[in-house]
Write a protein that binds this DNA or RNA. Structure first.
Length: 273
DNA sequence: ATTATATCCTGATCGC
DNA sequence: TGCGATCAGGATATAA
């Protein structure tokens, strides 16, 4: 199973890149896939990387101003399905398939590899401009009250709602199922019909599942020099996703797979009401 | 205005 | 063994 980058995976990528890239000077950027050139690609020569962090589901790379470029610059990399940001120390000229862009740095190279080419580059001049529209579920502003406001008047089912990036930013197909299971809420429930007790459980589950995933993602993506970079223990954390017909670890019921919004949803009908 | 659906893309897997 | 069909899903454009 491929670890599709949702919030915890993107957080992990950003945390691992930060110490390696912060302070590095950029010699050049070569974009090899024209799809990554939406509008103008700003000049990078002479800029340094100030830092790398997560912004919603995107990796935000912050560049300093430079003598010839007076403004700060921000690049938001959206990994979508198969995008990988790989840091290669020194000059290790490796043959990499699906290479879409490469940053030559004063020490090492940053590669953007993306088999399915869904990934995107977006350039911004300030971090407010780069900020996502939805609420970050791990920020302090995401309170139970805020959740109440966000679901107000929405008539979608709980699964579809959780994946709306204009409400909460960062959840995808896998964690949406996991969170609903943790909250004991059926994915079929209309989101605005949840009781206050259920909404409270949902809020808790969103934060708990994401935090726990972040704690464990170090083992999911452990090695940025390996283009595969993915190993096993991720799967053992999943309570329902990909576990159709298996037993629910909480109640012993049988996990079911249904299709919502053309996407698989996994849940336990016995304990998710 | 809000919600549902088709589309992008390519490697892996499935069925015959 | 081979080959076409199907599946996977984040976000967006388009349709309802």
């Amino acid at each position: 199973m491929l670890p599709v980058p949702e919030l915890p995976e993107v957080e992990t990528v950003a945390r691992q890149l930060q110490p390696r890239l912060a302070g590095r000077k950029v010699h050049s950027l070569r974009i090899l896939d024209a799809r990554l050139r939406n509008g103008r690609t700003p000049a990078l020569r002479g800029r340094k990387i100030r830092g790398v962090r997560r912004s919603g589901k995107r990796v935000l790379i912050e560049f300093t101003a430079a003598p010839r470029h007076r403004d700060d610059l921000y690049l938001a990399v959206h990994l979508r399905m198969t995008g990988r940001l790989l840091w290669v120390p020194e000059h290790a000229p490796r043959r990499t398939s699906h290479l879409r862009a490469r940053f030559e740095l004063d020490r090492g190279t940053l590669l953007f590899v993306d088999t399915r080419r869904f990934g995107t580059f977006e350039w911004f001049r300030s971090d407010t401009e780069a900020a996502p529209t939805g609420v970050d579920p791990l920020e302090s502003g995401f309170t139970p009250r805020r959740l109440d406001e966000l679901v107000l008047g929405v008539r979608q089912n709980a699964k579809a709602w959780l994946m709306r990036q204009d409400k909460l930013v960062g959840l995808g197909n896998i964690y949406a199922s996991e969170i609903l299971h943790a909250a004991r809420v059926s994915p079929l429930r209309e989101i605005a019909s949840l009781t206050s007790v259920e909404r409270r459980a949902l809020h808790r589950s969103i934060r708990r599942i994401l935090s726990r995933a972040i704690e464990n993602c170090g083992t999911t993506f452990s090695d940025f020099q390996d283009a595969r970079g993915v190993s096993g223990s991720y799967q053992s954390l999943l309570a329902v996703y990909g576990r159709e017909r298996l037993r629910c670890g909480r109640c012993g019921g049988t996990i079911r797979r249904i299709v919502q919004q053309q996407r698989s949803t996994f849940f336990c009908p016995a304990c998710q009401r």
